[in-house]
């Protein structure tokens, strides 16, 4: 029997991710910044993934698209929502996952999943609590540090300064105040990450927090945020390798199922 080769493409607001599967094995990943020309960005991500997989586009049996720009996905045979893709990807990685937290640049999602990998309930941040990833990046810039360094700084803090947990715009104002008050950068970093974590946790509590909890999306690379999240949740979230690719992985798995 020939093993099917499928791909999932996740067209997010900030980046496009592609995952290529042979059967259920990941053989290639690709990522590109989402520019103004979504199709071009998608093709770039595809090229990178295909190169890693050492195959051509024509070798793909089926492609499923997800993400906010999924209707613009080139080569896609069908689509699945981000929540559906996240759920699929999460349960594949670890059958014990029951809660998925997906934090991207602009949107945060909390998903309750069944043992079969179905999204049974979900929460998405409402207007007043938007902007997780974008906010941390802006604050890192305000402190004139690379994002990775800004995130690591938070781990050095021993203080918890309360900060606006509802609105990223308000919180930004408060950070400026802290900078002017010459607050140590590690405490500022910790406060920023705590406030995002609080907002995210408050949202995820709507679907209930049940172990195991998987954290995915680009912001999962942020060690400061992961630390704040663990403290707030009073448990350790599981951060997979390549956390930003889980949506695309889920879409690729759906493609594999559909191919069968």
């Amino acid at each position: 029997m020939i093993t099917a080769i499928t791909a999932g493409i996740d067209l997010g607001a900030k980046t496009v991710k592609v995952v290529i599967l042979k059967g259920k094995e990941v053989i290639g990943r690709g990522i590109a910044t989402t520019g103004l020309d979504q199709k071009k960005s998608a093709e770039k991500a595809f090229d990178a993934a295909l190169k890693e997989a050492k195959i051509d586009l024509k070798d793909l049996d089926r492609v499923v698209a997800t993400g906010v720009g999924r209707t613009e996905a080139p080569n896609a045979n069908s689509q699945i929502t981000e929540v559906g893709a996240d759920a699929k990807g999460a349960i594949f990685l670890n059958p014990a996952i029951r809660t998925v937290i997906d934090i991207g640049g602009e949107e945060g999602r909390g998903i309750k999943i069944s043992p079969e990998g179905r999204a049974v309930d979900f929460a998405i941040n409402e207007k007043c609590a938007a902007g997780a990833g974008a906010f941390t990046e802006a604050m890192a810039r305000a402190l004139e540090r690379p994002l990775k360094e800004f995130a690591e700084l938070a781990l050095k803090s021993t203080k918890s300064i309360p900060m606006n947990a509802q609105c990223a715009v308000f919180a930004e104002s408060e950070v400026v105040s802290l900078i002017h008050a010459k607050t140590p950068h590690e405490d500022i970093s910790r406060a920023v990450h705590d406030s995002i974590a609080d907002r995210i946790i408050s949202m995820v509590r709507r679907v209930g927090i049940e172990k195991e909890v998987l954290l995915i999306g680009g912001v999962a690379h942020n060690v400061g945020f992961v630390n704040s999240l663990n403290i707030g949740l009073k448990l350790e979230v599981i951060v997979p390798e390549y956390p930003e690719f889980i949506g695309a992985l889920g879409a690729a798995l759906v493609a594999a199922e559909q191919q069968e």
Binding site: A129, P162, N164, A165, Q166, S195, D198, S202
Partner: peptide, 21 residues
């Protein structure tokens, strides 16, 4: 308490006043 809390949103929708939340 003027402290951030992660318990609020599941009880009161974001568009209500900070004091009640």
């Amino acid at each position: 308490s003027h402290e951030a809390s992660d318990l609020t949103e599941q009880h009161i929708f974001g568009m209500y006043c900070p004091f009640c939340r």
